[in-house]
Design a protein around this nucleic acid. Structure first.
Lengths: 199, 199
DNA sequence: CTTAACTCGTACTACGGAATACGAGTTCTA
DNA sequence: TAGAACTCGTATTCCGTAGTACGAGTTAAG
């Protein structure tokens, strides 16, 4: 039903419209997860009826927007060199993807309001697995901790990034500081903790 | 306008109603940040009109609920022994307050939707200062890191707790594991990081 | 050039929630 | 126990958004 679905042949202008709508949806919902369909149509420079012609319901649209964001995320992930020292790889990964994740915070919120929880998780599996893979490698190298559940480690990284987004929005964190701060924080979370002081 | 405001004398039954309403608001909004006024009135076992008699707008009500939650939080914070070793104090603090913060995630979301951002921050200052105080003490003891902005350290703890709440909700984290996981994570974030490997 | 696909305005229904008005009944409190 | 404070149901207004219907105009594609 969305961009990647080869469902049936479409005319070129329709293809173009869809692309603009999905892009506008991503942008609008990332600013305000409650943006109305009308807002999105306007942002896309397209009539509301055209939008309804391609997305029957709001949920359809939100899903397409989320899928698009995740597709973009996977693209970035795919371009990052994750070989070698896991700590270095993690830094590279965060350096090139933190802003993308951060910007999608509100979009995710929109999805959580309209999409079934299972669907969201499903869409996240691919990128999540990449991160999981990296963490596992780091664990095998002895660079990352093994005393916490893998799902938590993956999840908490996301939450830290979303948190960073909010700190930026409320101006408690300067944008040019963010990369350093986020990387330092996540590295600390994944690092092998020192043994508890015996005394 | 809320419980603690001594604005004017109220009859005992009014006082009771307000208490039930605020409590119900906290509970309802913590489950679903979009809960309607009607839902809350029902949950409080009170007529909708009674509610409007005490809270003129939805925003008033949300603010009262948030204030109440924060008041409860401060109470807990006040009861925790924060003296001595900062790491131990942090553990004690998280141990007794993580669930409270976690449960307020949705309530906060409701507030962000209806209250001006500044107001929310204002209400948070008191508890935030307590945490800040603890971190500063830990820094002076050499137990906590000093290479990241204080506002970030305070903020990221909140985000980790909110994240934990979500992981529980989506059943990616077992409730009985949470305290340990959260404490380990936050301790790692605050710990003094090892110097970057020279090679 | 023909036609099917697409665009898109206007008007409409449906729905739900916030807030107000009114008024009758109930319960504190002095 | 008198009266003010409080409770609370019903009805009503207002508003914004999702989604549908219709139909005329425009554009791509074979």
């Amino acid at each position: 039903m969305s961009t990647s679905t080869p469902g049936r042949r479409r005319r070129a202008d329709a293809e173009r419209s869809i692309a603009r709508i999905v892009s506008a949806a991503r942008e609008s919902l990332s600013k305000d997860p409650t943006a109305s369909i009308d807002d999105i149509a306007k942002a896309a420079g397209v009539g509301r009826m055209t939008l309804y012609g391609h997305f029957r319901t709001r949920a359809d649209l939100v899903e397409a927007a989320l899928a698009d964001a995740l597709r973009a995320g996977e693209e970035v992930l795919g371009a990052v060199d994750l070989t070698g020292d896991a700590r270095g790889a993690l830094t590279r990964l965060l350096d090139s993807s933190w802003s993308l994740v951060a910007e999608s915070t509100a979009l995710l919120a929109a999805a959580q309001g309209t999409l079934p929880a299972g669907r969201i998780r499903q869409l996240h599996t691919a990128p999540a697995e990449r991160v999981e893979e990296l963490i596992r490698r780091g664990q095998e190298q002895g660079a990352f901790r093994t005393d916490l559940p893998m799902t938590w480690l993956v999840g908490v990284i996301q939450h830290v990034l979303h948190g960073a987004a909010e700190e930026i929005r409320t101006e408690r964190l300067k944008p040019d500081e963010t990369a350093r701060v986020v990387i330092a924080t996540v590295q600390s979370i994944l690092a092998v903790p020192p043994p508890p002081a015996p005394n």
